[in-house]
Amino acid sequence: MPSSRRQFLKQAASGFAGTVLLGACAATPKSRWRFFTREEASLVDLITEQIIPTDDTPGGIEAGCLNFIDKQLVGAYRRHQNEYRQGLLGLQNSSRGKFGKTFQELDWPEQTDVLDAIEAGDVEAADWSGVSPQRFFQLIRDHTMQGFYGSPRHGGNKNYLSYRMLELDVPHIIGQNRYTQGLDKPNGWIN
């Protein structure tokens, strides 16, 4: 895949360059995350919470969706690194453009507004480069869902909290139903 690899490297390089220009590597403390800077991580945490909010059951933050995405971005989703880097910049630009504040400073309905606009592509084109707003939204929404509902081994769904929310047995109890619930036996059933 020579052409796509080259393109990827080019994009990745420009992504890293962008980070440097914004000073993320200058004087900020070292990030505890594998891929995200501290700034990016706080942003992703809030986005995942918007995508799956806390109500009477936990939401995206408590499930560890940020940890899932961060872990996959240095693993199976390495190819999406640049889209995240650029997308989070775009999101922050859109937030400032719309409300004059960073996404972290917005209240809940304002954050929802920003995400609605990004999902619809209803943003200033100049604020976004390297990834389309719709594409970025779809990525982070899908990845948040995967982190929330996937196996905890991938870094999210802490203690299977989404399975508890759905009232599915945790751990998966198998075999029990064969003799605890009186199943109808169709024709031909021996024993």
């Binding site: 799956i52 909010p53 109500d55 059951t57 995400l115 929404r141 759905l166």
Partner: peptide, 16 residues
């Protein structure tokens, strides 16, 4: 709508 409160309500109410 595929995210937010609407997503979660649907997931909880209709999975089963």
């Amino acid at each position: 709508k595929r995210w937010g409160t609407e997503h979660k309500e649907f997931q909880k109410k209709y999975f089963k």
